[in-house]
Design a protein around this nucleic acid. Structure first.
Lengths: 140, 140
DNA sequence: CAAAACTTGACTATTTTAGTCGGGTATATA
DNA sequence: TATATACCCGACTAAAATAGTCAAGTTTTG
């Protein structure tokens, strides 16, 4: 059970911005160097973050990105959603006829997987970008 | 973020056994038909369940599998472990030198991912096979 | 002995992932 | 106003993981 790198890098990059950006834009080049993430890959990621209004871009020389909101108002669940990273631990859809291995009735374990998804989503829903920055002595 | 089908089928199959098996062995053929899972695939899965002492096999005609323990003593975490399905949401290892994108220092978000893994694992740890069977009116 | 059912390792097609590539466009500053 | 810097965006691809299948057994009961 893994998270893809796009989602992970997105969170890393945003955390980086929250730490290093004061008021001026942060260039992807800087993030790339600090976090060891490919610049070209970051571009792909930030395109989605921008579309979902998590960051704003400033073009031209001295340009870069800034956070659209305060870190304490950015939920991790938002970020994952922007990256199309859905938590859907199993395939069969709740409301589809064609589900649960082709049977119309819910498979015996169906509710369990729904519960699992809920459990994970609630975690992402509860965490804000600002929570990641209290790095030392992280209070759980 | 997905669970692989092997883990899912394993849980489904065990739940099936818990429901349909009284005392006699359940053949994979029966599980295959009831749950719509390929017989050949089930064989692969049960090999691992057997190695990890979650089920016992009975060979020969009228053979099959029985649960090694009572459903209320089988934790879902055990089942996933048997299938090598580790919850490791990101790649970088806690104690490795080569981690967090090649930097020796922990990446800024490292603690967060650890927390996430813990959160998911505790769910699997807390759930028993028997919990899946109280299907209607599932109490969370 | 024959059939049912478990045993095991190897193989493979498909899908997903994790990026790269190429060719843009906008803008601040010299 | 030239140009370097940095964002913009779709298309492409190599490698890995997934989801199985296949072949060739062994064991046990009727």
């Amino acid at each position: 059970m893994k998270l893809n790198t796009k989602s992970r890098y997105a969170v890393m990059a945003l955390a980086d911005m929250a730490v290093f950006s004061t008021s001026k834009a942060v260039s992807l080049r800087d993030i790339s160097l600090r976090q060891g993430i490919s610049l070209l890959y970051l571009e792909q990621i930030f395109l989605k973050l921008k579309k979902n209004n998590i960051v704003k871009s400033i073009r031209g020389i001295n340009g870069g990105y800034i956070l659209s909101k305060s870190p304490k108002d950015i939920k991790i669940s938002e970020v994952l959603l922007a990256l199309d990273q859905k938590v859907k631990t199993i395939g069969c859809k709740k409301d589809s006829k064609k589900s649960c291995n082709g049977k119309s009735s819910k498979c015996i374990t169906h509710n369990f997987w729904d519960e699992l998804d809920l459990h994970i989503n609630s975690f992402f829903e509860s965490k804000k970008l600002s929570d990641l920055l209290k790095n030392k002595e992280s209070r759980i």
